[in-house]
Amino acid sequence: MDILSIQILLQATLRMATPLIYAGIGETFSEKAGIINIGLEGYMLIGAFTAYATVYYTNNLLLAVVYAILVTALFGVIFAYLTITIKANQVIIGTALNLVGVGISGYLFRILFAQTRKAQPVRTFQQLPIPALKDIPLLGPSLFDQNILVYGTYLLVPLAAIILYKTSLGLVLRGTGEHPHAVESLGIRVVHIRYGAVIFASILAGIGGAYLPIAHANQFVENMTAGRGFIALAMVAFGRWNPVYVWLAGLLFGSTFALQLRLQAAQTIIPYQFLQILPYVVTFIALIISHGRSLQPRALGIPFEKEGN
């Protein structure tokens, strides 16, 4: 492989990793606060459809991201109400959310676009090369000749790490997932923190979903997330609930998507099905490698019951 193809592969890796990174960082915050959300895939599909429809009707990319955020946040509130307030099982409600996500995005897409043959390509976020930086050999074009949502992850990841490990908010958040009763005894409402974390996660998954039709492709396709929400879930465990490692995991899985597409285009003798399942096989192997739950937040998945009730 020559320098140029490595560079192209790197560029594609970052592009494929971006939606995973958004969803994965959000889920990290949610899980740090003690709430596991299996419904990431649903959020992403809802975000993807909202963004596509918004650009289609308004031609405004920024508005598309804003709407994707608002709509997925609404679903985040519903998820939070069911799992935090009435303490429903998080896995079950997450599963329901996935079904609703697949259903509602597919239903509206067919009604508004597919059945009437109005499904057309939309405007997308264009590459925004950063002068000077993009001329760095090898890494320059890969890192600094991307669209704005990719750049967003460069800010998001360090920011997430700083918030989580260097601020009092981060301390409270981590405490909420480890020792919720200790946090509550400090006069901080665990329920509020968890609502915040869940809604934050839904917003980021919404952006990750929006990325697919308006930055990666220029079209919405039913089920276009293709399991990325689940891969993001695996990233969080593989990345040991640390934003920086989760980011690295995102790059790894992103590279499998990029490699898979590239090998398919290169027409190797490997059957295409093996290339298609590559991301899932790598995720599965990564799960096995990162086994053990010693680093998992202690109160993950457990509804918070106030003492003395």
Binding site: A88, T95, L97, Q115
Partner: peptide, 25 residues
């Protein structure tokens, strides 16, 4: 009636959420 059959997925998801919420309440 040309009503997209994926409506069925929404029905499934909502039914799960409601049955869980109802039995908890």
């Amino acid at each position: 009636a040309r009503i997209p059959s994926v409506l069925f997925k929404i029905i499934q998801g909502l039914a799960i959420a409601f049955i869980i919420a109802f039995s908890l309440l």
